[in-house]
Amino acid sequence: MSEELIFHGEHLLDVQRLKKFFPIKKGVFRRTVGWVQAVDGVSLHVDKGETLGLVGESGCGKSTTGKCILRLLEPTEGDILLEGKNISAINPSEMKQFRRKVQAVFQDPYSSLNPRMSVGNIVGEPFKVHDIHPSSDIRERVADLFKKVGLRPEYMSRYPHEFSGGQRQRIGIARSIALRPDLIIFDEPVSALDVSIQAQVINLLDDLKQEFKLSYLFIAHDLSVVEHVSDRIAVMYLGKIVEVAKDTELYSNPLHPYTRALLSAIPIPEPKQKKKRIILQGEVPSPINPPSGCRFHPRCSEAMKICKHEEPIMSAIDHHHQVSCFLYR
């Protein structure tokens, strides 16, 4: 709540108290016996020209958040505003406009490209769906896009299986920028790639962002990559955002005990620098039955009495740094 007091003006994307619960069904009559609370009250925003990184471990709800924003999943509760317009309740023709403005690139470049279509057709399809260029023009447009993402236009008539993982990811990126969207949601775009290819794709994303004035929501688990690409970073744990900060601030001054543990757990390629590691005990609890109070308290080394009973709310440390922890109240 306190977030809204600080940030005024219009954000490109504004997500407010987003919830997504999945029913657990059992028995012959498929009765709902419980809920997986995948995303539980997430608020975030992305400004124009900004990259917001969303990090967390598997099962924390970061991908579900992305899918809800894309409306690939119907949110259980909460509002999603794009340029101030609530997209939770829009009609199909408005939906098509929305799809033009918000694009997505997913982790697995193998399963997100139709194996029966040539890559030229894959990248050109958005033009057809949205009826933007006359079909005679499309080939040229696609060739342009190919050059932009560093692929040879001669490859247009080839099929996805003829490309390596990195090239496929480039094809996915070409498709996502075809319609000149405002926002692209990346869900683990580089985690399936080799290190040297990863750097190429990250640099490409930087270049495209500059050239087309894009905004990114960058969902990933690798904090080093997220830190590199993002302007601001939101850390998620078990369906909730626990800390939001500017990229450098999050690294130099992490506040939430979970963020600190996460940062300390990452091995860095500097053998002389032995860092003090906070080893978290146990594992991420199930989102079906999340712990009471602060969801991190059973693993937190600094848990207090209040953490068990009361849920902490986001409070602002300063303009660019918010944390949801009782230590800072």
């Binding site: 390596s164 290190v195 040297s196 990863q198 190429q200 450098t248 130099s252 390629p269």
Partner: peptide, 25 residues
């Protein structure tokens, strides 16, 4: 080694472009 983003390097030296190894394996 140059192509991996290093955690915290941005806080010290600002954002730098990652060095790439051109081409692919």
């Amino acid at each position: 080694l140059n192509s991996i983003p290093k955690l915290g390097s941005k806080a010290i030296g600002g954002k730098k472009r990652l060095e790439e190894i051109p081409g692919m394996v």
